[in-house]
Design a protein around this nucleic acid. Sequence first.
DNA 1: TCAGTCACG
DNA 2: GACGTACGTGACTGAT
Length: 923
Amino acid sequence: MASNHLYLVDGSGYIFRAYHRLPPLTNKHGEPVGAVYGYTAMLWKLADEVHKADGPTHMAVVLDKSSHTFRNELYDKYKAQRPPPPEDLIPQFPMIRDATRAFSLPCIEEEGWEADDLIASYAKAALAQGWQVTIVSSDKDLMQLIEPGLDMYDTMNNRRLGAEAVVEKFGVMPHQLGDVLALMGDSVDNVPGVPGVGPKTASKLILEHGDVEAVLAAAPTMKAGKLRDNLIEHAEMARLSRKLVELASNVPLPDPLEDLALKGIPEAPLRAFLDHHGFKSLLMRLGGGGGGVDAPQPAPASTIELPADPPCDHDAYESVTDLAALDRWVEEATARGFVAFDTETDGLGAMARLVGISLATAPNRACYIPLGHGGNDLLSETPEQIPTDQALARLKPLFEDPAVLKIGHNAKYDISILGRQGVSVTPVDDTMVMSFNLDAGLHGHGMDELAATHLDHSCIAFKDVVGTGKSQKGFHEVPLREATRYAAEDADVTLRLWRRLKPRLSPEHVTRVYEMVDRPLVPVLSGMEREGIKVDREELARLSAEFSGQIVELEKEIHAIAGVPFTIGSPKQLGDILFDRMGLKGGRKGKSGVYSTDVNELERIAADKDGGPGVEMVRKVLDWRQLSKLKSTYTDSLQAEIKAETGRVHTSYSLTGAQTGRLSSNDPNLQNIPIRTEAGRRIRDAFVAEPGNVLLSADYSQIELRLAAHMADVPQLREAFLRGDDIHNMTAQELFGEVNRDTRARAKTINFAILYGISRWGLAGRLEIAPDEAQAMIDRYFDRFPGIRNYIAETLSSVRECGFTTTLFGRKTHFSRIKSSVQHERQGAERAAINAPIQGTSADIIKRAMARMGPALRDAGLPDVKMLLQVHDELVFELPEGDVERAKPVIERVMATAAEPAVTLSVPLGVEIGTGLSWGAAH
DNA sequence: TCAGTCACG
DNA sequence: GACGTACGTGACTGAT
């Protein structure tokens, strides 16, 4: 029997070469696809190799994931001045993954390693097993690896490269190539080498002396001249270069060798991929594809017109209750290379109980696998169903198969549920996130709404299945046939949405934000939700009791002053008491005829120096309000949120809740835990670490102002941040010519006003000055910082033209009211549009930091550091006390460099870190 | 279900 | 001249 033969494809290297060799082709959707076309054709060629006697039995595509590797630690200039990839190549990177998936091949990439290192490690492991290895690449660095049993294959020239090719090109054997490359250096990668030494001299030196160290040792004895001097003077650079060109061959393999076995290419996903891009000649080779020209045609971007799918047929859905049927579904999904899925649970949140799983592979081809139906209710009979552990044992390989794309709608939730069952889910697409990236601001992204919008289909309402109010049942009590109709429909609709939304990503230019920001975050958030954070119930109970006593006391006093008992919590009653009964002046009624009693209004009254009983009462009402708020929203409610299983509180993050791209947190909201007042801060002290651990809080300092300085190009602000100056002092100096407490406070207010889109009245209200004065101040700000004026003008003109704003990472937010004929609607949209790119870019950056944090900590040997919370510009971690000092620099680095390499900022990102036994203490 | 209020960045 | 004129959230309360 022939031995195994592993093909390792250097995907990253290939795409750059293909980009420069092939014309700038565009597919029918207007997407640049030249390199993708070349890459696809290359995979095709490799697929043909399978049939040859010596062909591959195992294959993987290896890609570069991170820009930061151990080589950057050795030499900070390594690859530092590489120009960013060409604009029209960037969107092609994610398409490479799509192409790879269409061929059902695993994609290997790992944070902290270059593709070359992974290739070297896989090659070494395979050779050790006695396998043959072929590296599909023509990269000179990889030629070092050539040895008996390992060759290279340059698909562009159709050439096999063995040791003789290395001798021909460099004059040395492959095992000496590293030494030659080190002496030569590489200007593209910024490997320094030795000045004046090129390939010829390098190979001569190495042939003569053996390796770099021997050359350096012999240098003093060489004949006097430039070469000798350079070798002596740059010896250290030569040694460094030797380390830089060395390939790491002991990287832990992300996927075991056996998983790279070729399984054949399922036709459907490949056809879908080729069809999407209009790669006609390849389609023809697949058989049945239309004729016509070979290369994709240049064409303007247009909306994708898919033929309408058949309507949802609920009777076509299958209830899967035996293993044979389940195996058929797993097999079909594996063959297709993608599957839509959904989980049904009792209750909500990451800690809910799994009741069933649905799958869909094509419109109306969907099933429901009941797992936890019946059971704890005597009235409902337990239907026949596969025991959960058996079903999951069959489903686990599917959910974990790197060659099968799992499509979910709000997949974060399903990943949590399955994760608790020991099943990880990867790779994942999420139609809710896709919709958000495409259409944020236009409509919601719930499945029911999207089904109505895109599919003209109205989904079975959940409450029609489980009922409402007292008679509401758990999903496990829903009869099997009905549960199947509902659950399988969800998977079916998810699949249909995916077929509509996925092809829109690239032509609408949101591939980058989807692939680089939001999609990688889905499993990360899932993990954070499952992790939860420990809350000290007794501490909260103590606070509740304490607040309660004060509230009762205040209530008595307020009623005594009013002379009549009333509901203090009713703004209507309170307004009537204050302004009518007690005769306080300045009461303003809103359109509903109720006096305003918000905190601004009450504080205005409370500030009255010679206040009568009314003023005294208002002060007590303010205290009462604060304590009631803290008690009802935090100290009482949070106790109820502690889950018995974990003793921790598990929030749920919404990726699609905030129009700007921020996350939001709910059930409970852990992004608005008090901090600004003393009473409130005590609530933060109830968020604690497990024994032996501490909490670490890391926050970006002034990130939005820094981004404004970069995006609006304000030199004074930029330089102040570079110097590390106090930014509000700087603004005060610019605006008022002197810095004191008052001018700093006013400057701070104006700086924030700028971020939020300013109006003279708004600023006037905040600063308690006349609108005219506020306007003068705004004018002065614009005169000192003209970049801000330009930024606002450009942002507005662009949002008026396109209807959306974009962040530095390409995130869109749509503003349909930007053209409203109602002035205050239009002006509101304008203010939001000015803010959205800044707030959104900040959100993009921290999201990237979050996606990179886990791998970075793991690579640093800190697997026990857990990321628990995100609060817009802050990340909260729990970690063993002994890990703190090692974790700090890793966290700091990941956060500070999170924009790179996609975006290069002209201001540094400052990160502040604190630790303590409680969240309060970590600040 | 809405409006008002207030906790956070 | 008015817009309860700063952006983005979620939870709770009382009133309907």
